[in-house]
Write a protein that binds this DNA or RNA. Structure first.
Lengths: 219, 219
DNA sequence: TAGATTGTTAATCGATTAACAATC
DNA sequence: TAGATTGTTAATCGATTAACAATC
């Protein structure tokens, strides 16, 4: 078993391949080549093969990859063969939207604990899930052995919450708070900063604008 | 002017630096070195200097970067000196959450057109913004010259919507639909696939688990 | 002047792509 | 067997980091 180091982007692509395989399976297509798979995403076939080769030999030379089998392998690799309990911290606009997002449960992620600091919300049940005061994070998560958390709170106090999550044994955090958080090396922090994303769009729009006027001028 | 090619990640980091500079300015700190800036994000000082050097010489040797001035430069580079009109397509849970997200307006992004296909929603006004039928995308966006769109709709029909946006002159799209969309080379598509993100978290949790049990066994 | 820190070039590192023997 | 496609090694590419002259 030579695990070497697996690039982050390989993992991201793996879950994209998986979605494609689900579609292929639904369409009754029994096998697919790295070339075909690559074409769908504008990737290089060698990259597809390399990504998969990190985890084993799943293909058949001359034929390609058996759809269903590869799908099973990827599900196992990505840890989707089991259901995951997920803690949601913050039940504002974004938190509520995420709670109602059907994609989670479909893929085995169940929000089973919610935390908020608003006394109006604490104690209620939303979608059958109890809302706890944030001060209960450590004991509740510890007891339930929850490993994955979603952070949908404002910047202020976010680090304290993260510290609590880590103390409680959480090893993976999806963070929507627009701030830099620090976690120990063995905890995975995935940032989704919508305002940063919008800024890159703004940058590209500025550029597109300039290009357009330049081209106009040249023509 | 040697523009060369600017890495995507440089742009992302630029907007992170900017946030830091805003805080520094609020704290009345007038200058900062690449070393200090890098430390805050666990980056390399050379990288900070290189990122900035793509766009000009903003620093003073021996002293560092003047906070306020650099902030201004970054705002100009990222296109934040102007307000942006943004179109929101899809007013479900996620769309509503994004509409109510205060971070947008604070940073000059105003959602000024909403599209949905639900007849119940069409024609209403939400937060003072009119909801149009999706079939009106092209004329409405064209007339208002909107350049940035947020896509918060399900997979089905997403490509058709994107085609409309592009036809109407949109050059940057923030996509929350969990599907691969195709756009022309001069349009920037930024995907935020929450289910893919959760899968990478799942993968890391699986790994952390294995590591933990291995260490236990070894001890 | 001495110390500090930039801007930039060169070295390193890591990821992508090309090429090809292995093999279905 | 001939054609196709994998798995893997080698070549390329691009981004990060180190090093250092320029200069405040």
């Amino acid at each position: 078993m030579k695990s070497s180091k697996i690039p982050e982007r390989t993992i991201t692509r793996l879950s994209i391949y998986l979605r494609c395989l689900e579609e292929l399976e639904a369409d009754g297509i029994v096998s697919i080549s790295s070339k075909q798979l690559a074409e769908r995403f504008g990737l290089n076939p060698a990259q597809v093969r390399k990504d998969l080769a990190y985890f084993g030999q799943f293909g058949i030379r001359g034929l390609g990859y058996p759809t269903q089998e590869l799908k099973n392998h990827l599900e196992r690799i990505l840890g989707l063969k089991q259901d995951w309990e997920v803690a949601l911290v913050g039940l504002g606009n974004l938190g509520s939207a995420l709670l109602h997002y059907k994609g989670f449960r479909e893929r085995g992620f169940k929000i089973t604990a919610i935390f908020d600091k608003d006394p109006v919300k604490v104690g209620r049940r939303v979608k059958g899930v109890r809302v706890w005061n944030v001060s209960w994070i450590v004991p509740v998560i510890k007891r339930r052995k929850i490993k994955i958390a979603i952070l949908a709170i404002p910047t202020v106090g976010a680090q304290a919450v993260v510290d609590g999550l880590v103390e409680a044994g959480v090893t993976a955090i999806l963070n929507f708070a627009p701030t830099q958080l620090s976690v120990p090396w063995n905890v995975k922090l995935q940032n989704v900063d919508i305002s940063v994303l919008l800024k890159t769009l703004s940058f590209h729009t500025i550029r597109a604008d300039r290009e357009a006027t330049r081209t106009e001028g040249a023509s």
